[in-house]
Amino acid sequence: DPIGTGANSDAAQQRLIGQHGAGDEVKVEDAKDPTPYVKIHPSIALFERYPELKDLVPLAVEKAIQDILNVVMRSVQIACVTTRSLIMKDFAMEPDHTKIQRAAHQMVRKLTSSLALVTCKDPLRSNISSNLASKIEERANSPHHPRIVVDQAMLEQACMQISADNLELGCTLVENYAADRAKQDIDEILAAFYLRKQQGPAFPSSFPKSLPAELKPAPNGELSFAQARVYDD
C-alpha cells in the first residue's frame, strides 16, 4: 500500500502495542473496554489537584466510542453493499469459494475501516472531550464529592489533552470493531454465493464476450498475478 491507508492504521496499532508491551494488542472485544490502553498525561493540572478524577477518563473514552457506533454501522453497511456487488461481478467465474471469501474479507475490511475512520475521527475527538467534561462536572456537583471545585480553564485544558492523546486509541478500536463486524456481515450476505460455488462447477460467465482476454479471468477462473493481487492490497 504505497499511499498508506493500511500502513497508517497499522502504525497506530504499532504505537499502541509499543506503549503496553508486545502481545498486548487491542482486540475488537476491547471496543467496550478501552481502560488498559487509555493514556493520561502526568502533568494535567486538574488531575494533579484531584487524582480521583482520572477514573472518569476510561469511562469517557468508552462512552465516546459507544456513541459513535451508529455512524460506524452505516460504514459497515455501505462497504458490504459495495463488496457484494464487486465480488459477485469479478468472481462470477471463480470456482474456489475460499479464494472468493478471502478477497471479500480483504475488500470489506479495507473499505469499512477507511470509511469508519474518515467519518468518525472528528466526532470522536469532540465526543471524548465533551463526555469527559460532563462526567467531571457531574462528579463535582455531586454531594458525595464536596472537595472538588472545578476551574473552567483547567477543565478545558484537561479535556483537550485527553481527547488529543486518546483519539488514536478510539479510532483504532472503532476501525477494528467496524472491520470485524463487516467481515461477519459479508459472509452472511455472500453465503448463498459461496454455497453455489461449493455445489458445482457450473458457473455462467458474467464477463461480456467483447472484453479481450487479458481483462477477464482465464476460463477456469485462474487470475493473473496482478489480478490476484488487487484484492490483497
Binding site: 464487486l86 461481478k89 469479478d90 475488500m107 464477463f207 461480456p208 472484453l211 481483462l215 488487487v230 484484492y231
Partner: peptide, 8 residues
C-alpha cells in the same frame, strides 16, 4: 466496469 478488478 466489467473488467476484473478495475473498479476495486
Amino acid at each position: 466496469w466489467n473488467s476484473f478488478g478495475t473498479i476495486a
